[in-house]
Amino acid sequence: MKKSSLLSALSSQGVLIALALLILFGWLRYEHFLGLFNISSVLRYNSMFALVALGMCFVIMAGGIDLSVGSTAALGSVVAALLSPHGMLIGTLGGVAAGLCIGILNGLVIVRMRILPFIATLATMLAANGSALLLAQDQSVSVSYDGTFVDLGQGDIYNIPIPALIAVAAYIIGSIVLNYTGTGRAVLAIGGNEDASRLMGLPVDRVKFLVYALSGALSGLAGVILASQFGAGQPIEGVGWELFAIASVVVGGTLLTGGVGSVGATLAGVLLLGLIFNVLNFENGLGWISLSAYWQSVIRGLFLLGVVILQSRLSSKQSAA
């Protein structure tokens, strides 16, 4: 059978099935699980991760990795908070621009200096962290409550959290770019076989540069939402975000080697991992058992383990056939 379609279909539908089962479980078991308040808070909180994971998804599909997303988001939050007195637009643009700068730096180091993405983004992770702390003078930066900046993270439109709307819009655009533009196809081709893509005349360097720039900008945007949602730019936030994002992408069935991937399934992966925490909270609320919040990382890890083993079994079965 075909590796790509079978694998991606099964593992991407796998995440949807798991997500559906988890939601069903929560709906049957907890009274307020599908209540407006819970849904809205889950979406609001996970929007930041969704944005970061979207950028990561593109990077991974192109065969790379971006470890700098967490501290880039922190940098974005600091810049946005510093600029928030000038209004929502300036704050947002500033935060995104800061993220974009880190993304561009990643792209340049990887494409121009030909340094492994892993090590390049590890370095920029440090650089972004240092810059964020410098700008924030080693403390969190309160945002201005005068203007509309805080609405971005805390406001709703028709009861839907604004961050969720931003994330959904980003995913729709991302999906269109991936499936209906030459650049999107080039991302997958480069991840599938970079040498061949080069020989095919695809602008490999430009596309690789673009995915890192995109990942940086989306991380910056996530940082803007972070600042707005929690009322402060937080220079030391974002630790471990990169691995959460990678886990979401992998759980969503995107091959870590690049070349196969789905934007929608990544969103499902983010929600799945996010809901585990939520379910844990409800379970503790029932009072039957008391699981500390720390179990969430154990359960997330086990989830990732299950998906990864499943993927490897699938692919080894195919190569044996």
Partner: peptide, 13 residues
């Protein structure tokens, strides 16, 4: 990178 990511997440937990 993925296999050790599992323990990275779960291990601290």
């Amino acid at each position: 990178i993925i296999a050790t990511l599992v323990l990275f997440i779960a291990g601290r937990g």
